[in-house]
Nucleic acid binder design. Sequence first.
DNA 1: CTTGAGGTATGACATATGTCACTGTTTTAA
DNA 2: TTAAAACAGTGACATATGTCATACCTCAAG
Lengths: 204, 204
Amino acid sequence: MIKCLLAEDQTLVRLGLKNLLELDDEIAVIHSAENGAVCLDLLEQHSFDLVLLDMRMPEKTGLEVLRTMQQGKDTTPVLIITTFEDCDVLVKAMNLGARGYILKDAQLECLIDAIKTVYKGHQVLQPALTNYLLSHTQIKTEKLTAKEYEVLKCLSLGLSNKAIANTLNNSEGTIRNHVSQILAKLNVSDRTQAVVKAINECLI
Amino acid sequence: MIKCLLAEDQTLVRLGLKNLLELDDEIAVIHSAENGAVCLDLLEQHSFDLVLLDMRMPEKTGLEVLRTMQQGKDTTPVLIITTFEDCDVLVKAMNLGARGYILKDAQLECLIDAIKTVYKGHQVLQPALTNYLLSHTQIKTEKLTAKEYEVLKCLSLGLSNKAIANTLNNSEGTIRNHVSQILAKLNVSDRTQAVVKAINECLI
DNA sequence: CTTGAGGTATGACATATGTCACTGTTTTAA
DNA sequence: TTAAAACAGTGACATATGTCATACCTCAAG
């Protein structure tokens, strides 16, 4: 019996997935989390064979959960459940130790296969993304710094440079430099594109 | 037996919901659609007691499905299933004849109740939004024109004014005027905020 | 027929944005 | 201990953006 923790914020989706998964009698979703913080709590309190982790969640995103797990030396295998083929996020997730990912667009059989494969200790990479992952391993050099993440979050709220400067207690010039760096790392040419990318690929 | 059409793009979510709903023996999901176009096809070919409609779908969004249904005099009751409390979209959806909406965050019982309520001919409005709906009925005056929608779509792709002008075969000045109008109607102060709003509230 | 709304366009203007070059300090890793 | 990042800042510059006033055309509703 594979004891799973299911972390997914939307109640109906969470219930639906739990139900679908328990149609398979090797899989048991013994706990569910509606956000990243709860997920981390449950991981501390119980032991699981596998974590099914949504990327887009309130409180703590999937990436934040992975970071915390890595820092806490928690080696419970993680299978990412994601909406889009958000390449950059997946690269980050894999670098943070995730064992694989599955799209919500996948067939139920694929999900169940993926769970069993990860449980056996293997990785699960869907073909469409594998090439990207292989060819973009150097994407790590594109990784944003902590400060840049901060600024990106502000950008995604629609704040101006001046407003960001006030919020983060910096000069406007400094923020401009950070924004410039972010645009270069995300390979886009203005803040609007950065926000679109950040939202679509749930970098924030 | 309530014969339902379930339109939801993500396979796992669609399967999950279908399964959950069929736990109730008054409800039967007799067909599913993975995008808005398929949904419209199915509506032409079959008759349903109720449509469960996701707003965010490829091919045709929920709003586009509602528009087409309205034009085709299709009066099948529609219950919106939505992710966020995307107020503006919901106002539009209700104005396009939707009978109610339910958040994916809701409990299963709420969804089933909502289906039965709509089936009986009533409306379903969740309290959190009812006030907004009531107090923002004049939001129709804020409605974007067809052209403005076009421009907003371009904005959400991260295009510059010049690029939009090329794409839509207009002068840059014209696009600037449209953007200016869009900002005013969305009550935001720059294009980035407009994009954030458009994405969050799936206006696009 | 006239009015109004949508669409197109221009020119001028004030800001905002993004880039560059350069200078520091602090923290981290080798 | 040194070198490399990250972080903070400045000044200058070229563009992009958003606003305004104004104008003309078209189409549909009155």
